[in-house]
Design a binder for these strands. Structure first.
Lengths: 176, 176
DNA sequence: GTCTATAGATTGATAGAC
DNA sequence: GTCTATCAATCTATAGAC
């Protein structure tokens, strides 16, 4: 499953074949089918694993600081910290959703829970900042800004561009 | 080629098979291979067609008004005007680049010319607004914001979210 | 240029011995 | 639960008659 996750991220779900997963994992074909009925079932498991991991990340951030602005910035710093993979393969959450949204809305709705995770957590921190009524809208705004930054930075494979734009995002958080 | 373009947009390049193009176009397999040597060559042609069409769009905008702010807003209005397809299939330029960036950088670099087209045109209008040194950075910022808006609106299939966020973008343009 | 037939590889998935 | 062999469908691409 870890092999599948990496392949789905680096090459996309469609372009990753069962044979690729077999090779990367070192397992045998029939063996994988003993645990997953289909390639789609592997995808669902990968999404669940992503959900689990990101929940862990958010819990860590919550445990670390009780300052809502610092939390919002932790989200931005995650992007900067992962910039080398982001400019190469894009956002693991965003690119997966975009691929699935075109043609497989049912599965994409599962993947959208990854967005919900950050959306709710960001909104929660924004409410702590006194942004009661507009917390969800601001959370979505921040999510969108982050996605846009990753997209253009990936298109131009440009980490400096990512730095430059995340700096603006920090400024936006400060101005709240 | 028009059939291919629509299929690539609605289902993605990988998920579109040659058989799909044959069926959608009503042509015969061998016939298509008479004009395009490979599926990849169809993709290149589709990108070129996109380039041609968007150049036409920009020329129209240039002919219509000489007001740079009105031009920047025309870019935003294009997004609002296409929202129903955008929330369903995403940005034809963005989603194509994202798919190709993962695994086919050579082709993606061709597709990135679509971004260059808007990037340069937006920067030109920003220069007319007196934003000399930061025109390119602001153009990229605007492009990124637009991409992010489409991504989250597509993820949540939410035209209202797209309306809400493009409104902020108009405000940003006004503030320039 | 148009059309049919098919090659040759790869796809996701299964059967069944061990 | 592990492993080999293989299925049927589909993939992109080509050959060659008309």
């Amino acid at each position: 499953m870890e092999s599948a996750r990496q392949l789905f991220y680096q090459h996309g779900y469609e372009r990753t074949s069962f044979a690729d997963i077999v090779q990367a994992s070192g397992l045998l074909r029939g063996n994988i089918y003993h645990y997953f009925k289909s390639k789609d079932e592997i995808l669902e498991a990968v999404i669940d694993q992503h959900l689990k991991d990101f929940r862990g990340v958010l819990e860590k951030w919550d445990a670390k600081k009780d300052d809502p602005k610092a939390n919002l910035k932790a989200f931005v710093e995650m992007i900067v910290g992962r910039k080398s993979e982001l400019v190469e393969y894009g956002c693991p959450v965003g690119s997966l959703n975009i691929e699935l949204a075109k043609d497989r809305r049912e599965v994409q709705q599962h993947a959208a829970e990854l967005f919900d995770l950050f959306r709710n957590w960001l909104a929660e921190n924004l409410r702590k900042l006194g942004k009661g009524g507009e917390a969800d809208a601001l959370a979505l705004h921040l999510l969108g800004r982050a996605q846009g930054i990753v997209v253009i930075s990936q298109v131009y494979r440009d980490e400096k561009l990512l730095n430059q734009e995340t700096k603006l995002l920090r400024g936006w958080i400060d101005s709240l």
